[in-house]
């Protein structure tokens, strides 16, 4: 049982929870995720660790209410408990000073991107962050990414904030303007697919973080499997980050629809 210490609404459907998990706070690195369960009959739901505070023994989760389970988690309040939190899972992000890094996040994907932006900046990279969402009120964590970004570009589908256009328009603009050494993309699978197609065209190495369906998160079930360069890989232990140019996104998109 893990106590919820703080809650904040980033938008109508996106909630930040600060949760007690001292052991995980200590051992997690950027890129890691946890699996949580709300209720004794709850599902095991993977969520990225957006931040951690070793002193307070807490981790921060940012959750978008999509279906039944994420709604249940988002409905919890400070003082309530998550039934289970296990982690940190997955491989940590490979952080290195490569030069200029474009970090692009869509929707709730900005939350897992935040620790990577921080770490990339601290490693000495020039960081250009592209945040994208359908409209202004769905843009999250802008204030938190600014201190660690040399530039922040905001894209909305409807033009209600920043510039009108898709995340790919923002990324392409930067690539055309200056030399980009790496792109990191986290967001809906369909967005990552198009970012990947774009950066492949320009030959810019691209890392994506995949949000497949999972059960155990420890390699036991294979629910999270995807195809990378023709080989089956498990996102929970081999990932969640992969070379985007090698991922079969169409298969992943199809597998995400298993239960919808």
């Amino acid at each position: 049982m893990n106590k919820i210490i703080e809650k904040e609404h980033f938008s109508e459907k996106v909630v930040k929870l600060v949760v007690e998990a001292p052991m995980i706070a200590r051992s997690r690195r950027p890129g890691h995720f946890v699996i949580v369960r709300a209720g004794e009959h709850g599902e095991r739901i993977p969520l990225t660790i957006a931040d951690a505070d070793i002193e307070r023994g807490t981790i921060t989760l940012v959750i978008q209410a999509i279906g039944n389970s994420t709604q249940k988690i988002c409905a919890l309040n400070p003082g309530d408990y998550l039934t289970d939190v296990v982690g940190p899972l997955g491989k940590a992000t490979h952080i290195e000073n490569v030069g200029t890094v474009v970090c692009c996040g869509g929707g709730v994907g900005v939350a897992p991107l935040l620790p990577i932006i921080k770490a990339m900046k601290q490693a000495g990279n020039k960081v250009i962050t592209v945040l994208a969402a359908r409209s202004k009120d769905l843009i999250i964590l802008e204030d938190q990414v600014r201190p660690y970004s040399d530039e922040v570009i905001i894209m909305t589908d409807d033009g209600s904030y920043g510039r009108q256009g898709l995340v790919t328009n923002g990324v392409e603009e930067v690539i055309q303007r200056e030399k980009v050494d790496q792109v990191v993309t986290i967001g809906p699978a369909i967005m990552m697919k198009f970012v990947s197609l774009l950066t492949k065209k320009y030959n810019v190495p691209t890392v994506c973080s995949l949000n497949t369906i999972m059960v155990d998160g420890t390699g036991m079930c294979g629910a999270c499997r995807i195809t990378v360069e023709g080989k089956t890989r498990f996102v929970c232990i081999d990932g969640p980050e992969f070379d985007a140019h090698k991922v079969d996104f169409d298969e992943m998109l199809m597998r995400l629809r298993s239960y919808n």
């Binding site: 059960v215 155990d216 629910a223 597998r255």
Partner: peptide, 15 residues
């Protein structure tokens, strides 16, 4: 083998 509706027995039994 990665089509929807093909899964490991571990996944099936765990669920």
């Amino acid at each position: 083998e990665n089509l929807n509706g093909v899964m490991s027995s571990n996944e099936y039994l765990t669920r």
